[in-house]
Design a protein around this nucleic acid. Structure first.
Lengths: 223, 223
DNA sequence: GGTCATCGTTGACCGAGATTCAATACGGTG
DNA sequence: CACCGTATTGAATCTCGGTCAACGATGACC
């Protein structure tokens, strides 16, 4: 905190320190409620240094998001390979929920809003989502790209983000209920995808199947 | 465009003009890429006038979102009551898609990002979503508040937003495929909810049912 | 047709905060 | 202990949202 004036650090150290701080600050307050001055002061560092390390405020924010997304993905990848099927899904989602709980509003501020429609920001988020989607695809046993399944998984992830955000804000349901829904939902979503793309080879083994007639004639809208 | 200096309009006209402009501007560029000066110039009006009509930039943006959300909801409510079941869902979703196509990036910028974590902005969006959710609940025949179903519908809406955004950006699938998925998905989602809350009375009649054993023992996660 | 009040409208001004950059000094090296 | 590379500084600048007292178009009233 109260350093001697001008403490000189290794580039990596300083960068890491600033990213941790960014994660903390942008967790509790919105992008434009956090001024560069505030960040600099909190870090015990001059304003100019932030510009030296990152190109500007926007870029700093972007780096913070990438950092956060990386940590989230890492904690999901920490789930052991031995787990498969619904227990695996449960473990992945638990890791997700824990990240959200650990970082409080960070999740909302970082992964769900922040600067908003800035192309670069949404780009980082989209990359992160794509990586999560890849995990899900892999665990479902899909190899080749299947547009319908990509659609389905994208829907699922979007839903998870919305629901988790809501759950975090106003705990209507228990964590167990939330998990039960989300685990059931991923299966159901993949089953809908199978209905529309019956040729894809997915393995949906695992306890709770809702489907008994896999490839019913797909419903097609008027026109 | 090149008006005589100082054109005086009725309050309502001017306000409507400014809202339309806002919708157009915030559609193509992000919130803080559009300066008050730019808006004023584009409108052929002084900066001060914007402050007269709306309290400030944030409030102006907020009003624009509310305006857009209102139009979206209105177009969904234009679906005739005579349609029920999957055709109704299809019609609602079609209205949704048409709104998105008509307003191009507006949808992405306004309903999916914008200022981001600003409480008021997310509040407006959340209100809008809640109204859509209420439509879905009604159409599903639910009366009393059912937390599990609220969760499920929130998931669905979140997924729809994500998927439609993606679809609009990079047309991977045909509109028909997208609709088929989304119509199948709402049913599947409600079925998952029924699994977790079997007492709720929903009517899921309509062509494509995936369920044959409605209330299987719900899967419960470890711990 | 002229005068007057109303209020839609203006534009110069202010302050906060993002960005720049030439100067500074810390820490390792000889 | 002097020196050098570079991490670090902070004052100057610029951009942009926000304020406010004055202006003038419109319509009412005589």
């Amino acid at each position: 905190m109260a350093d001697s004036p001008r403490t000189r650090l290794q580039t990596d150290e300083r960068r890491a320190q600033l990213l941790d701080l960014g994660l903390r600050l942008f967790s509790s307050r919105a992008y434009d409620e956090v001024s560069i001055d505030a960040i600099a002061e909190e870090a015990g560092v001059s304003k100019g240094l932030l510009y030296h390390y990152f190109g500007g405020k926007r870029a700093y924010y972007l780096a913070t998001i990438e950092y956060a997304a990386g940590r989230l993905l890492a904690s999901m990848d920490a789930v052991p390979d031995t787990l498969v099927g619904p227990p695996r899904a449960t473990a992945m989602l638990t890791a997700y929920l824990e990240f959200v709980e650990d970082h409080g509003a960070a999740y909302g501020t970082l992964l769900s809003g922040g600067v908003g429609s800035d192309p670069e920001v949404t780009g980082v988020l989209e990359t992160s989502r794509r990586q999560v989607a890849a995990r899900i695809m892999r665990d479902a046993g899909l190899q080749a790209p299947r547009p319908v399944f990509e659609l389905a998984v994208r829907h699922y992830i979007g839903g998870v983000e919305a629901v988790v955000l809501d759950w975090h804000a106003r705990r209507q349901l228990s964590r167990e209920q939330l998990l039960a829904f989300l685990v059931g939902q991923i299966r159901a979503t993949l089953e809908v995808a199978v209905t529309l793309d019956p040729d894809a080879s997915v393995h949906l083994e695992g306890t709770p199947s809702l489907v008994t007639r896999p490839a019913a004639e797909p419903y097609s809208p008027d026109r």
